[in-house]
Amino acid sequence: MTDKAMTSQNISLSSLGAWLRAPVPTSPFHARMQQLWLQWWRLRSNLSALFGLAVIVVILAAALLAPLLATHDIFEQDLAMRLLPPSAEHWLGTDELGRDVYSRLIYGARITLYIALLTTVIVAPIGLLVGTTAGYLGGWVDTVLMRIVDIFLAFPNLILALAFVAALGPGIENAIIAISLASWPPIARLARAETLTIRKSDYIAAVRLQGASKLRIIFGHVVPMCIPSVVVRVTLNMAAIILTAAGLGFLGLGAQPPSPEWGTMLSSGREFVMTSWWIAAIPGSAILLTSLAFNLFGDGLRDVLDPRHG
């Protein structure tokens, strides 16, 4: 192979494969890419995880391309067209105000993913930080932080989120804050458990002997080792977050009408569900499918990233 062929512009697919399968990695980057490649191969053999991933990709695409995919305006009411069953004009029927259910469903994906992703972005770093600090420093820091975690864990997720939303007032931003406040403790506990095993390992002792500060050890050497299990946990958590968000919406404490959030759609269609099943069946199926996809994908990720807990 000439040097020219190895330049990044005209690297061919087969040589990329060879590079990924090379028996000995030539650089840290190379090794990391090979690891990723191996994990992808393992994930590929897990059909249910692939199904989960596919569904997540479809929902993500629907959310991103919502303006292109939607066939009707999601807020435009047409009382003459209310409660129509699925048809060629309205693929999934219309709701109690004559709005197109299909278009609202597509836009609703945006809100659901927005809540799930934003909550995760808030929760994962907090959980990691608290857990690794408590686990690595030990002593009274550990005792105090874990007591706080215990207090939060003493409430079921939804009850705590409900109490926070009641205090903060309904709305989508407050729902995100409330769900975040309720869902960081399990991650902190997980990160702490991981840290307790990591801190005893030889490489940490080696780093410590080289004079690295505690901060440096925690962020440079403990946190990266905790990331795989936290990623798995966070993926599985997304399913729970989606259910909690939908529950808040259903109770009228999350996203407010006329928002096309799926839980809110279910709640506003509730009175008509006995005669027009699609109003409730469709957003509910969407919640179920999304949550199921994250559960399946999370289980698959666990087998790949975190085989110990499989």
Partner: peptide, 13 residues
């Protein structure tokens, strides 16, 4: 994965 309030609604229907 199923939201239990939705299962309840569908069960009632």
């Amino acid at each position: 994965s199923a939201p239990n309030f939705w299962l309840g609604l569908m069960g009632l229907v």
